[in-house]
């Protein structure tokens, strides 16, 4: 079996004296959509921060495409080929949509390629076409989510990390966003997403992990997890019997 694209190996991370992750290991293969599920305070967002270098694990390694990236600064990790769709989107609100998209291509220097990709991305997100000159902060939540995804794509990443991409969206936009994630993946970009909404995430994911108080409680193909009664129980507050 070929090496995974992203691999977390025995991560232990802490907020001060409080341990968040206990020997956390997971991986994303090239071409996959993998979702990390879990309730509040399970350590999902910390996992994302650890991958992106916004937080350092005390022990364990993060490997991307054969290169150890834990310990690198965030900009270096982005340059290695990881795109980020942060939690709550974090657009540059005072900049236009166009400027936001071009910020996504900040790590690139090929002007012609960036122009082509802008056209390609706008093909994927036609709604953004008419919004190009508008300040990003004035868009609706769903449109902002699209900008955030398009912005991440502009860096031509091989893996996109998405932190709660459906959070705060209207039900109609949730479906649109999920469909777009599947589309992005069909174009050859691997996706690692953190989600609270298990049933939605498992509709498009290939595999999933369930995180509970810093440990992987369950993992497997999305179809299997979706049928697993323990998933339901876990989200209703019950303990997952591992």
């Amino acid at each position: 079996m070929s090496r995974p694209l992203l691999e977390l190996d025995k991560i232990n991370s802490f907020y001060g004296p409080v341990q968040v992750h206990f020997d956390l290991s997971l991986h994303v293969n090239a071409g996959e959509i993998v979702c990390l599920l879990g309730g509040n305070a399970s350590g999902k967002s910390t996992t994302m921060k650890t991958i992106l270098g916004l937080m350092r694990p005390r022990s364990g390694t993060v490997t991307f495409d054969g290169q150890v990236i834990s310990g690198l600064e965030t900009p270096r990790i982005i340059r290695a080929g990881i795109g980020s769709v942060p939690e709550a989107r974090r657009l540059f609100g005072a900049m236009t949509v166009r400027e936001n998209l071009l910020m996504g291509a900040f790590i690139r220097n090929d002007a012609a390629g960036i122009r082509d990709d802008l056209a390609r991305v706008l093909g994927l997100f036609p709604r953004l076409h008419e919004r190009l000159g508008q300040r990003a902060g004035t868009l609706s939540g769903g449109e902002q989510q699209m900008v955030a995804m398009a912005r991440a794509l502009m860096g031509r990443p091989r893996l996109i990390c998405m932190d709660e991409p459906t959070m705060g969206l209207s039900p109609r936009f949730v479906d649109v966003v999920l469909e777009l994630i599947a589309t992005i993946n069909r174009e050859g970009v691997s996706v690692f997403m953190v989600e609270q909404n298990a049933s939605l995430a498992l509709q498009i994911a290939h595999r999933g992990y369930v995180l509970q108080t810093g440990r992987i409680a369950l993992s497997g193909p999305a179809a299997t997890l979706a049928r697993d009664p323990r998933i339901r129980d876990a989200y209703l507050g019950g303990e997952v019997a591992a």
């Binding site: 900009p75 910020m103 860096g155």
Partner: peptide, 17 residues
């Protein structure tokens, strides 16, 4: 551009590289 982006959201700017 990097200056403007950093001024608006430093963490997000880092995540753009």
């Amino acid at each position: 551009w990097a200056v403007r982006a950093t001024a608006q959201d430093m963490d997000a700017a880092k995540q753009m590289g």
